[in-house]
Simulated assay, not measured.
Amino acid sequence: MADSAVFYRSKEGETADEIVWRHYGNRIAGALEIVLEANPGLAALGPVLPLGTRIRLPEIETPKEAEAIRLWD
């Protein structure tokens, strides 16, 4: 299966968590940690990323919601 990651270049004053929030929203728990793992050294750049930092935003599977079970109909 081909890697369908997206690459992003940071703009002035952006943070990694802001970029992750805009890209993934709040639907994926742990998305920031996954992005940091996919980008070794990104966390060492500090809270505000240098202008033009290339960030790999990997495809993350969205967990499926459990089907509700009804005991009584």
Rank of each mutant, 00 (worst) to 15 (best):
P58I: 01
L49I: 13
L49C: 15
E61G: 15
L45N: 00
E59P: 01
A44F: 06
G41L: 01
G52R: 01
L45G: 00
E37K: 09
L42W: 07
G52E: 02
G46Q: 08
P47Q: 11
L42P: 03
G41V: 02
G52H: 03
A66F: 14
L45E: 00
L45Q: 00
P58F: 05
P58Y: 06
A43T: 05
E61N: 14
L57E: 12
L45A: 00
L49M: 15
A44Q: 13
E65V: 08
E67A: 13
L42Q: 03
T62A: 13
E37M: 04
R54F: 04
G41D: 00
P58K: 03
E65G: 02
E67R: 10
G46R: 11
N39H: 08
P63W: 07
R54A: 09
E67C: 03
L49S: 06
P47E: 12
E61I: 14
P58Q: 06
P50Q: 07
I55V: 14
P63F: 08
A38V: 02
G52F: 05
A44H: 05
E67M: 09
L45H: 00
G41M: 02
E65H: 01
P47G: 06
P40K: 09
V48M: 12
I55L: 05
I60T: 09
E59A: 07
E37C: 05
L42E: 04
E61M: 15
G46I: 03
R56Q: 08
E37A: 09
E37W: 05
K64Y: 06
E65D: 08
T53Q: 00
A66Y: 12
G41A: 01
G52A: 09
A43S: 13
A43M: 07
E61H: 15
L49Q: 08
G41F: 01
E67L: 11
E67H: 07
T62L: 15
P58V: 03
G46D: 03
P58G: 02
G46P: 02
P50E: 04
R56L: 10
A44N: 09
P63N: 06
P47V: 12
A66G: 14
R54V: 14
E61T: 15
R56V: 05
A44V: 10
E37D: 06
G41C: 03
N39M: 05
L42M: 13
V48H: 07
P40N: 08
E61L: 15
I60K: 11
